Simulated assay, not measured.
Amino acid sequence: MAVPAPSKRPRVLVVSPNRSHLALLARRLGAEGYAIITASDGRAALGELHRSPIDLVIAELVMTPMNGPELTRAIREQTAFAEVPVMLIASRAEPDPAVRAFAAGAEDVILKPFHFEVLVARIERRLAAARRFAALRADMNAMDARAALKAIELGELKDRMYALEAERRRISA
């Protein structure tokens, strides 16, 4: 994968209490061209979200004191971050990890062990969907602004029509 220009590099927040796992993911994802921000737990992750713009969050399902689903819910509850894609990493040994992750609002669940290439493909898919959603939201905002402008123009034309009708009646009388 070609490394994007620094300003265009997607910013990925990786959250894991396991330092070696965190370092490995950060190094490999960084080599794929992502700007990596790391956090060792859910609370630190929320702090990072407030510090700088994040394009995607990858977090462990099992963490303390705030686990992956709790982190996902906290992200979804904050309007500024509600649309940031969240992917949770779970062990196959955990009962119903996907159910808990999706119920909390995660977009994807990656079960360990996973192929790194598949992880990167899933990240790209989530980032592409987020870009499409952002473009759609921008188009909707632009349409709302145009509709509001047209409503104002229509109101002004209506006022002018009433004024002209009143003037016509005054002249006729």
Rank of each mutant, 00 (worst) to 15 (best):
A82L: 03
L56K: 00
E77L: 08
V120P: 04
L61H: 05
E156R: 02
I123N: 03
P65L: 09
I37V: 11
K150S: 10
R132N: 11
G47Q: 11
R126F: 11
A138V: 00
S20Y: 06
R126C: 14
A2H: 15
E70I: 06
A103E: 08
N67K: 03
K112V: 05
I37F: 12
A138T: 04
L25H: 02
P85K: 05
A44K: 03
L157D: 04
R100T: 05
L127E: 01
V120R: 05
L119Q: 02
R43C: 08
A90H: 00
A103K: 06
M1R: 03
T38V: 08
A142K: 12
S40D: 12
G42P: 05
R51P: 01
Y162S: 10
P17E: 15
M161S: 13
A147M: 09
R160H: 07
E70A: 13
A39R: 04
R92K: 12
A82G: 05
A138E: 13
G47N: 08
R51G: 01
M66E: 09
M1A: 07
G47I: 00
G33H: 00
M140F: 12
A166C: 11
H50T: 13
E77A: 13
V109Y: 00
R170Y: 14
E153C: 06
V57L: 07
R125N: 14
I89L: 09
H115L: 11
E117N: 11
A90T: 04
M1T: 10
